[in-house]
Design a protein around this nucleic acid. Structure first.
Lengths: 121, 121
DNA sequence: TATGAGTTACTCCTCCAAAAGTGAGTTAAG
DNA sequence: CTTAACTCACTTTTGGAGGAGTAACTCATA
């Protein structure tokens, strides 16, 4: 749970209100989130296949990232399968697809234009 | 200092190695970083004027973000003024300008296409 | 002549908040 | 007792904020 009284919280809220770009970046910066998006785009549409594809991700993080992507309407969640064990399928929305396209542009930029000192950020 | 032994560290390193987009996003996700970039673009080229423009930023964070931007060659730092008190001026590089352009596109996307539930990310 | 106050652009240290990882538990049918 | 798709409580790691301190002078005052 967040502490709504801290400067830390207030500064983040101030930035997100100033420009939604900060909100988008804050979302994208959640570890594994873009990888989950790309993996779904590549056809890994079930929890278990995503888990297999993103080999070091942990269950709770994957569950959380799927929830975030769904809340922001970047993916859809379909659990209308009357099967046991449960079956759930995920798919990108139009917005999710557009975002993926934008991220591809960012990716090209980072590969061709950026310099990442080995000591990392 | 980072603990290079943790899973936390290894996962981040794994993702950054997998795709530099993760490195770029990790950089952009540092709070205030994009605001500092935009503020310099708008002409606030000194430490003190940036501090004034970004009213809630603290000294150590501003200093750190300027250092990061310089390390990644997104801005240049000019301290060739023989003045007291010290005078230092910052300016965007070509890469910095391109990144700013990309971020503008991202910003438009987030304003027109994204849905941010009020409870935030 | 000496002292002290002010200036910019920082650094360093400590504390607290947020995010990630770990491992066990849940549901419901076959 | 297995399987898929989770949830929850707990620990560790990372990041941000607060505040004091520094260099290298200038200018005003005692």
């Amino acid at each position: 749970m967040r502490k709504v009284s801290s400067t830390n919280f207030h500064n983040q809220a101030y930035l997100e209100e100033k420009c939604t770009l900060n909100e988008l970046i804050h979302l994208l910066s959640k570890r594994w989130l873009t990888e989950v998006l790309f993996s779904i785009e590549e056809g890994n549409n079930r929890f278990s296949s995503l888990k297999e594809d993103l080999k070091y991700i942990s269950d709770n993080i994957l569950a959380d990232r799927l929830k975030l992507l769904e809340q922001h309407k970047l993916i859809t969640r379909n659990d209308n399968f009357r099967e046991v064990p449960a079956r759930v399928e995920y798919a990108l929305t139009d917005t999710g697809l557009k975002l993926s396209g934008l991220l591809d542009v960012m990716c090209k930029f980072s590969e061709t234009e950026m310099e990442f000192p080995n000591a990392s950020c």
